[in-house]
Computed example of a mutant assay.
Amino acid sequence: MRRAIVTGAQSGIGEACVARLRREGIETFSLDLSPDADFSLDVSDSAAVNRAVAEIGQIDILINSAGIIGPNLPLWEVDDRSWQKTLDVNITGVFNLCRAVVPGMRERGWGRIVTMASIAGKEGNPNLSAYSTSKAAVIGLTKSLGKELATSGVLVNAIAPAVIETPMNAANTPEVLDYMISKIPMGRLGRADEVANLVYWLASDECSFSTGSVYDISGGRATY
């Protein structure tokens, strides 16, 4: 039986990914700040991440879904703490998890890593400079790591959703949500289960000749 860990696993896309992987018979561990998670931790804490990975043991699949929106302000009004917190969770968290699981995947000659980027990482959303920057960094990390592992049996791909109906996006102001939906040709929010279906394919044997790629799931907003 393959074994997976999902970060940000107690709500939204992460929760949907846990349900999808478990439905396919994959032993899946949830990592989240919530005390209800299998491992309650902050992904930006590398020591906590390393302890959890060591305790779990064999990990075949990593889904990096933990993330925060960060400050919804013009760049010149963003304070140091808010900026750093957004990057700590959204990109350093991905780095911490990848660094912890990759050696074991390489040793076994098989692994799948899926990172959660965003359309904001491709296009930039106004008043979300920290979030947009962090998600662009996720794309860069994915491309780099995918190439580093290309002949190892470990595949690394990213997903770039547009606005998805999740608790995280519920924190956005109506004006921000209206702006993002207005750019989606389908004219609606995406669903977490739709993202989880794409995640599952990327985490499966069926995905065999794609690595370092970024997959659009944006209702037609960005197809590049």
Rank of each mutant, 00 (worst) to 15 (best):
S65M: 13
L73A: 12
R81W: 00
S82H: 09
A47I: 12
G146P: 06
I164M: 08
A196G: 10
A130P: 06
D216H: 01
E175N: 09
R22F: 02
S213F: 00
V154F: 03
G212I: 07
T142S: 01
E123Y: 05
P71W: 04
T173F: 13
G140P: 12
A48P: 09
L75Y: 02
I217V: 11
G124P: 06
N125S: 13
K135F: 09
V43S: 07
N72Y: 12
V94Y: 07
L145Y: 04
S46A: 15
P35Q: 10
G57S: 03
D32T: 02
V89P: 03
I63C: 11
I5W: 05
A66S: 13
T166A: 06
I139C: 05
I119V: 15
G70E: 10
P35I: 11
P174S: 11
I5Q: 05
S218E: 01
A158V: 05
Y179G: 01
K143N: 03
A222K: 11
S11A: 15
T211G: 02
I26C: 13
L31Q: 00
S11I: 00
A100I: 07
T86E: 10
V195M: 04
I139S: 02
K183D: 08
L21N: 09
R112K: 15
R3K: 14
E55L: 10
Q84V: 08
G212M: 04
A150D: 10
V163A: 12
Y179W: 14
I61Q: 09
S152R: 03
T142N: 02
E194W: 09
G121E: 10
V53I: 15
D38G: 12
D193N: 14
G190M: 10
N96R: 07
P35V: 10
I164D: 02
I181M: 13
E24M: 14
T115R: 04
I61A: 09
A160S: 14
L97K: 01
L31E: 00
A9M: 00
L97V: 09
E77I: 00
K135R: 12
M105A: 01
A222W: 15
W83M: 06
L33V: 08
D32M: 02
I26T: 15
A16W: 13
L149N: 11
A130K: 06
D32C: 03
L87S: 09
V214A: 03
S118I: 11
L177C: 04
R3H: 07
A100C: 07
P161H: 05
R23F: 10
V154Y: 06
C98K: 02
R108M: 09
R106Q: 15
G220S: 04
V138N: 03
S129A: 15
G67K: 02
L21G: 06
M1Q: 08
T7K: 06
D32R: 01
E55C: 04
V163D: 03
A19I: 08
V156E: 07
D80Y: 13
A192V: 10
Q84G: 00
L97H: 11
V49D: 01
L149Q: 09
V78L: 00
R3F: 00
A192W: 12
S152L: 03
A9S: 08
G220H: 06
G25K: 14
G25Q: 14
E194L: 07
R2N: 09
G140S: 14
T223H: 06
E123M: 13
V94M: 08
S40Q: 04
A37C: 10
P167S: 08
S44E: 04
V163C: 11
S34I: 07
A48M: 09
L21D: 10
D60Y: 11
L202Y: 13
M180I: 13
E55F: 00
